[in-house]
Design a protein around this nucleic acid. Structure first.
Length: 392
DNA sequence: TCTAATT
């Protein structure tokens, strides 16, 4: 797997300072769906959620949005709103789409919203994309709850847990205070996702008042069978720390050559990321000109400039669809688009398709890994799309 | 002792 160059610039995506307009609507009252945690095995970031049967109060709002509006969690850090829209757009027509970002740094907060036109597509997206592995993440797709102040700041940080306590036991302990949206027990880094508990975790309740009651009831209390009391408090907001760290890096960087204000540096980072997004090349790290890179590799920059590296996938089955391409290529890095070429009359796949990836190194690893891959009873041929008009 | 869940 390719290692992504990581610096401040790569953390700041272009366009971050200009939030997209969001055509917000009154969001519907609904019964929140809690039972759609990742369907795959647990990974480092796929906390499962155990639903309980507490009823939630119904708030006012339109019924339609409750069935079309999805929240998507555990998105890879480098995934853009365009990539999110592209991925979910492969299911059906999207009414609106938003990746939530830090207001100051523009960094992705790792979640977003997708509102479909058709409720059936929203349901299909949950069924087909929930649990999808993208890079190191396992995304979670679920219906968005109606936005309201009462559901904010309902996340608790719990420490001092017995090392033997399971996630299920943690939920059982807290569920008496309300509806749990997510729970997680942090584990030791080296022992991996199924490794030993660090004795700390998180509980997100549906509503803040439930979290408050849980603090009152459980802070400084010993769980059944435990020898030490646990600490229960409101969790820090993860985005706060990130923006502060980033801003302090920008101001204190010892090798900064641009003594101007923050905004001036930000401009440069934005330019770098624009190039990175467009060509998979970091201008400061690559001695090659963009034209040189593309002609050298014999690669066609497909469609509109700035969409990435186009990959040709051959020997797909007649019933192949876009989701298989997402599933195959997504783990290798940022995928912006997939397309299965179909016969106009039969609507069956003509045996090939295309995948666009943002970063050259990730595309190269994907090709190296997937060329010759056996999919069902077929052996795939995977390569960069050649520029046929220049071919001999 | 702190993960990216409400636009």
């Amino acid at each position: 797997m390719a290692v992504r160059l990581c610096d401040v610039a790569s953390l700041l995506r272009s366009g971050s300072w200009a939030p997209e307009p969001w055509t917000g609507q009154v969001i519907a009252a609904m019964e929140t769906q809690l039972s759609n945690g990742p369907t795959c095995n647990n990974t480092s970031n796929g906390p499962s959620t155990i639903s309980n049967n507490c009823s939630s109060p119904v708030e006012s709002g339109s019924i339609e949005d409750s069935k079309t509006n999805l929240i998507v969690n555990y998105l890879p850090q480098n995934m853009t709103q365009e990539e999110l829209k592209s991925l979910f757009g492969s299911i059906g027509e999207i009414e609106s789409c938003k990746l939530v970002r830090d207001k100051i740094t523009g960094q992705s907060l790792g979640y977003g919203f997708v509102n479909y036109v058709d409720p059936k597509d929203a349901e299909k997206a949950i069924n087909t994309l929930n649990g999808l592995r993208l890079q190191t993440k396992t995304i979670k797709v679920s219906y968005a709850r109606p936005s309201s102040a009462s559901i904010r700041d309902a996340n608790l940080y719990v420490s001092g847990l017995p090392k033997t306590m399971t996630q299920k036991e943690l939920e059982q302990l807290f569920s008496q205070y309300g509806r749990i949206i997510t729970s997680r027990i942090l584990v030791d880094q080296v022992t991996g996702p199924a490794g030993v508990s660090r004795g700390v975790g998180f509980i997100r309740f549906d509503r803040r008042v439930e979290a408050e009651e849980a603090i009152k009831g459980l802070n400084c209390q010993k769980p059944p069978g435990a020898t030490e009391p646990i600490t229960v408090k409101f969790a820090n907001n993860p985005s706060q720390k990130t923006s502060q760290a980033l801003l302090s890096q920008l101001y204190q960087s010892p090798n900064r050559r641009y003594p101007g204000p923050l905004a001036q540096q930000a401009q440069r980072f934005r330019l770098d990321n624009l190039l990175n997004m467009a060509y998979g090349v970091k201008s400061r790290f690559s001695p090659m000109a963009i034209d040189g890179v593309t002609s050298l590799a014999g690669i066609n920059i497909p469609g509109h400039a700035g969409t990435g590296w186009c990959i040709f996938v051959y020997n797909l089955a007649p019933d192949a669809d876009e989701s298989i391409l997402w599933q195959m290529f997504g783990p290798f890095g940022a995928v912006t688009n997939v397309k299965v070429i179909r016969d106009f009359n039969t609507n069956k796949c003509k045996g090939f398709g295309f995948v666009t990836m943002t970063n050259y190194d990730e595309a190269a690893v994907a090709i190296a890994s997937l060329n010759g891959y056996r999919l069902g009873d077929r052996v795939l041929q995977v390569s960069f799309k050649t520029n046929k008009t220049h071919k001999a």
